[in-house]
């Protein structure tokens, strides 16, 4: 499948989903036209997003926090930074406390996901999503949208893990999975080590890594969106 086919399939799935969908944030989200595949990357409005979850299974696990930050003209706008704790249903599984350092007590201060989704969809509308390892964000948000609005979560995506893999494979085809982790890719590109780990800092870390990868792929900044879209 070529990038054009993928793009057309994305368009047709969006149109199909819109049919029979009532007015509201989900409809506004799906109705917005994303930037075309020929748009120069410099002009593409990108949003780096990171979710923290209680596990990896969207059917059973829940989102505990989200963080995002926007990129415009090759710059990350820290003014756009948003961090949101999500109140989950039931108690937090102990193993996720160990990973995220988030306690039930803190989550109590969060808001229910259903209240947050409209604002999140509004922030993503008409934009391209930037993630490190897209499956998690994509799957959890898809499950949430289907539950809440009965519609799929469809958005063009750029995945820094895949971009990093592309670059490293050029140098060394036997690249290990471990080297593609956010932390390891960042240190390869002389990016600072952040101490804090939360959804916002990880979204920022992803956005910074993207800028580094982009300058490697396209030193003169001539790339178009289709060159970097996730397949």
């Amino acid at each position: 499948m070529t990038w054009l086919d993928r793009f057309r399939s994305h368009q047709s799935r969006r149109r199909r989903a819109l049919r029979g969908l009532g007015p509201g944030p989900m409809r506004d989200f799906l109705a917005a036209e994303p930037p075309g595949p020929d748009t120069p990357v410099a002009q593409v409005p990108l949003v780096a997003l990171d979710l923290e979850t209680t596990g990896l299974d969207p059917a059973r696990d829940q989102i505990v926090s989200l963080g995002l930050v926007e990129l415009r003209n090759g710059r990350i706008e820290l003014a756009s930074a948003w961090h949101q704790l999500v109140r989950i249903e039931g108690a937090l599984p102990p193993e996720s406390v160990a990973i995220h350092g988030i306690t039930d007590d803190r989550l109590d201060r969060g808001r229910p996901l259903d209240d947050i989704l409209p604002r999140l969809l509004q922030r993503l509308r008409g934009r391209v999503m930037l993630e490190h390892f897209r499956a998690v964000e994509q799957d959890f948000l898809d499950a949430a949208c289907r539950r809440r609005f009965g519609a799929p979560f469809l958005i063009p995506t750029v995945d820094t893990l895949r971009l990093g893999q592309r670059i490293l494979m050029r140098r060394n085809p036997t690249i290990g999975v471990n080297e593609l982790r956010l932390f390891n890719l960042r240190s390869r590109f002389n990016l600072p080590r952040y101490q804090a780990h939360n959804a916002l800092m990880d979204a920022l870390a992803t956005a910074e890594l993207f800028l580094a990868l982009l300058s490697e792929i396209s030193p003169r900044n001539t790339a178009r969106l289709r060159d970097i879209l996730a397949r």
Binding site: G74, L78, E208, E216
Partner: peptide, 10 residues
């Protein structure tokens, strides 16, 4: 921080 932008120079 909210008044700053982040950029990367190769």
């Amino acid at each position: 921080p909210a008044r700053l932008q982040v950029s990367y120079l190769r």
